[in-house]
Nucleic acid binder design. Structure first.
Length: 277
DNA sequence: AACGGCACCTGGTCGC
DNA sequence: TGCGACCAGGTGCCGT
């Protein structure tokens, strides 16, 4: 489910209800996740106060008095902020109950996500320290991107989805950014011209910023802190539109599989490197 | 070092 | 109606 815009939408949605609040209780109904939820998490968090809620890559960081709660939504996770504890539904795995009566509820059917706790500086954490720059920050520049592209031979789509290169770009937005940039997903980073690198850097930022404005993309089951969907799906130009016509040139969109993931592109607007070189 | 592939898990959809 | 195959928004880790 969640790429960067969905995580950011969640962050901004839950933050106001949490900041400044003491944690009154933590209920863990299921601890089997990608990494198990630490047995002592409730004891560790109880009584601590939430200082701020930030995001690094697709990780949500709930800064509390003595440490940081690290939450990843995986492929199917969502967080809701409820005014009071309604009965837990299926896959409602964790509740963080605040002193003001709000409950932060973590639901994750596939359990690809995680809820962890650290007292170390977040930049040192094993899940964080290898990450590349934030795409919406000043660190993600055409010069940086060009430097990273040098000598690389994997498909450009795989490359921009590599969190060591730039974080936050998942399958949906990778497809969209490449389309906007007129770059075939199978091109190699080292083959990109300066103009193409400029365009792709710009469009990765632009597509993510626009999706955040729309509250993220809801395909099936993403919902924000209020349980409501995002509205960017209706603005998608290629993702999920295989066989439909290109919005620019009317050519039918084509699907290929890269890294075992669906990649949709316009054969006219994003010429194949094999036939055009 | 760079790259491809797999694994983790549930649930929805599609074809027979 | 039932059942198996396949697909889904992520990403760390493994082998080559």
């Amino acid at each position: 489910m969640p790429e960067l815009p969905e995580v950011e939408t969640t962050r901004s949605g839950i933050s106001p209800g949490l900041v400044g609040q003491p944690i009154r209780e933590v209920i863990v109904r299921e601890h089997r996740f990608r990494w198990p939820i630490p047995d002592d998490l409730p004891a560790l968090l109880n009584g601590q106060q939430v200082v701020s809620v930030t995001r690094r890559s697709k990780y949500l960081l709930i800064h509390v008095t003595k440490g940081i709660v690290i939450i990843h939504l995986g492929m199917s996770g969502s967080l809701r902020l409820l005014k009071s504890a309604s009965p837990a539904a299926k896959h409602d795995h964790v509740d963080i109950v605040m002193a003001n009566g709000y409950v932060l509820r973590f639901n994750d059917p596939r359990r690809f996500g995680c809820v962890l706790y650290t007292t170390d500086p977040i930049a040192h954490h094993p899940l964080i320290r290898h990450l590349g720059p934030e795409p919406l920050s000043d660190d993600f520049t055409p010069d940086y991107f060009a430097q990273r592209c040098r000598l690389r031979k994997l498909p450009i789509k795989n490359f921009i989805m590599d969190a060591k290169v730039v974080v936050g770009v998942g399958n949906i937005y990778a497809n969209e950014a490449l389309f906007l940039s007129g770059i075939h997903p199978n091109r190699t980073p080292s083959s990109l011209t300066k103009r193409e690198i400029d365009a792709l850097t710009h469009n990765i930022r632009a597509i993510l910023a626009q999706a955040i404005k729309r509250g993220g993309t809801t395909l099936k089951d993403f919902s924000n802190a209020e349980g409501k969907p995002g509205y960017f799906a209706q603005e998608l130009l290629v993702y999920g539109r295989k066989g439909m016509t290109c919005t620019v040139c009317k050519t039918p969109l084509v699907e290929v599989r890269l890294q075992n993931r669906s990649s949709v592109f316009c054969p006219q607007c994003q010429p194949d490197p094999q036939t055009t070189s």
